[in-house]
Simulated scan of single mutants.
Amino acid sequence: MNPEDPRENAAENAGDSPSNHAGGNPGENPLRREAGDPATAVVRPRAVVVIAVVVALEATALLLAGVWYGTQLVTGAPVLSFWGAVFTLCLLLAASVWLFAVARFLMRGFRWPRAGALIAQLIVLSIGFPTLTGGYPLAGLAMVVPAATAIVLLFDKRVIAFGSRAAGAPPAL
């Protein structure tokens, strides 16, 4: 056994609190530590994973809607304005790409995706409630429940602490 080996130290300190690995500084964020050492790896809250999955599923839904819309456009489905339909297709695909980026960078612990995820969830709620009350309860629930869950989890203190850094910067909190 080598006391200098970080893997062995990680196994020995598995029961220690996260603040012990962070150097014990009172102002240091216990969820964000230096990379490179398994004993000081970043602890990702489960809520972040749930939010990222919800956002990625919404991105997938937009991508599928864009593919369907594009095939309808190519097969000659009647539209009032061809260029308006092309613009709508571009918006669907761009929103899908944006949401995939939000999900990816949210998982990596960046600060900016929380705002993007919140706005996306508010938009989904603004579509989901009329769908729910307009005679399509299953489709409405499929939009409202994940969006409301993601909004609640976005304000969890562990999620905020995890995503408290800008690109390449030390912890902000």
Rank of each mutant, 00 (worst) to 15 (best):
V55G: 09
A142Y: 01
G76S: 07
A166P: 02
V48E: 06
D37T: 11
V50M: 12
L125H: 08
P113V: 00
A11N: 10
F105V: 03
I119P: 01
E58P: 11
R46I: 06
Y136V: 02
A101P: 04
A103L: 04
I160K: 12
A166V: 06
I160E: 06
P130H: 06
F129L: 12
Y69Q: 09
L93Q: 14
A56M: 07
D16S: 14
L153W: 01
S17N: 15
A56L: 08
V86H: 04
A172W: 07
P78G: 09
V67I: 15
K157Q: 12
I119Y: 05
A22E: 04
N25C: 07
T60N: 14
I127D: 00
L31G: 01
W98I: 04
G36I: 08
R114H: 04
A169K: 07
V49I: 08
Y69C: 10
L92G: 02
G76N: 06
L122F: 11
L93D: 10
L173E: 12
G134P: 04
L91I: 07
M143H: 00
V86M: 08
P78N: 09
R111W: 03
R111P: 01
V50T: 14
T75F: 15
W68T: 15
A47Q: 15
A56Y: 05
I119E: 04
P45V: 09
N9F: 03
D16A: 15
F110L: 15
M1V: 13
P18E: 04
A117N: 04
P171S: 05
E4Y: 07
Q121H: 02
A150W: 00
D16G: 09
H21N: 04
G23C: 12
L154R: 00
R46T: 08
A150N: 02
E34Q: 15
P78W: 13
